[in-house]
Design a protein around this nucleic acid. Sequence first.
DNA 1: CAATCGTGGTT
DNA 2: TAACCAAGATT
Length: 344
Amino acid sequence: MNGLKQFEFHAQLLNWYDKNRRVLPWRALAGEVADPYRVWLSEIMLQQTTVATVKSYFEKFIEKWPTVQHLAKADLDDVLAAWAGLGYYARARNLHACAKMVSDEYSGVFPDDEKLLLKLPGIGPYTCGAISAIAFDKPFAAIDGNVDRVLSRFYAITEPLPASKPEIRRRADALMQNNRAGDFVQALMDLGAMVCTPRTANCELCPLQSACQGLALGIAGELPKKQRKKPRPTRKGTAFIMLRGDGAVLLRKRPAKGLLGGMLEVPCTPWDENQSIGSNIVEHTFTHFHLILDVVKTNTIEHAEQRDKVSHIWVMTDQLATSALPTIMKKVLVKALGPDVFKT
DNA sequence: CAATCGTGGTT
DNA sequence: TAACCAAGATT
């Protein structure tokens, strides 16, 4: 970007954004400033999660809890139940904790100071920047996976992620201007989502093509470089289905933190790599391991009582659809009770 | 810094 | 089809 005439990155990208504006439930109309509550809620949901998946959850949350105060007053179990299926359940726990802090310490008004935003649970560097720019129109960068990719290509950054993060951060900060900060950060992400995509750079469609260093060097499609991820081990276990005479099924609550923290589960043996199991199985892939569970019906409660008795609860099967059950446990229950148990 | 933490879709 | 990816945060 040191040619005779500096490439107008900002203007070119915003022009493209205006012509390709996407309508999303949480996005304000042109010229309007968004509601910080909706921006925050959507940004938390969108962490490592696709737009298509988030839409229905966002609408459900807004309907159930129209303001941050409503959410603050909710029971965590209800928030977890509404979040069920969306994954990364620490987000739901932090969401609720953050709502309470905003409600109690900031009178229900999200602070527009980035240092204060960063202190709130679940708000890290990306989400802080996104809220600052989108909700408060402040010139703070919001660097997500899209921005990593777009800027790695535009500046031909060949150092692999995450080592290249500091350079990407410097580049992104340098691009921010006071004018239309929220639109600009969303435009950069939209460009990565719609044009400069992971497998295909689509440079012929890009408003930045004339100044893209990756394109000029013919390496845009190869960037950003990343280090390979470790292979996932396979763990196994047995899930015990216990049905009561009235049609209730025995569940238990998982510990408040860690994997599926605070969510409900069918009582299980521990999940180990060396368990031997039967053949009535369901499979599920988590971020860092693959799981195979054998689903066994039993009448003896001893299996469940090996661990914490206090957390066990009986749930009527017609209530399962609105319970805080993660996807793996829905698979287990469908395997044991049939697909109709989650029909509304 | 590297590991942990879900799920569904795409190639 | 196995790998990769998605508007990351936390420890």
